[in-house]
């Protein structure tokens, strides 16, 4: 079973993501800011297969979480998708530079999100 961490401070989006991904046997955890995300990652010893994160959040932004995850030397790599409504070109580029695997801009098409999640999980097997 894949474990997915959703980091999102919006009220509605996590509900939507949860619903979209519920059919597949994914285990979803949801945190609302960068600090909780980093805590959660430490607690579980980075025990996730995929992270879906927003960019602008309190405490630590999505990029920081992203770089923390991608710069980890040991352990298996974790895929990261950025889902954000803030997406000027510079930010998208910065995200990819830091190693993001995918970038989705809100509003998302549910099927697209699902496919991208599946594909990334396959790739990171």
């Amino acid at each position: 079973m894949y474990r997915i961490l959703v980091i999102e401070d919006d009220e509605v989006m996590p509900k939507i993501i949860e619903r979209i991904l519920h059919k597949e046997a994914y285990h979803l955890d949801h945190v609302v800011n960068g600090k909780e995300a980093l805590q959660k990652l430490e607690e579980t010893n980075y025990g996730y297969d995929l992270i879906i994160t927003d960019i602008m959040m309190p405490y630590a932004n999505g990029f920081e979480v992203l770089s923390r995850v991608k710069n980890r030397k040991e352990g298996k790599p974790i895929a990261v998708i950025i889902v954000s409504n803030a997406g000027n070109e510079d930010m998208i580029l910065e995200g990819f530079k830091l190693g993001a695997d995918d970038f989705l801009k809100k509003p998302v098409i549910p099927g697209e999100l699902l496919i991208r999640v599946k594909r990334l999980l396959m790739r990171y097997q």
Partner: peptide, 10 residues
Amino acid sequence: RSLLTLMYPK
């Protein structure tokens, strides 16, 4: 850290 996470694009 708090200043770095302000919401603004530029």
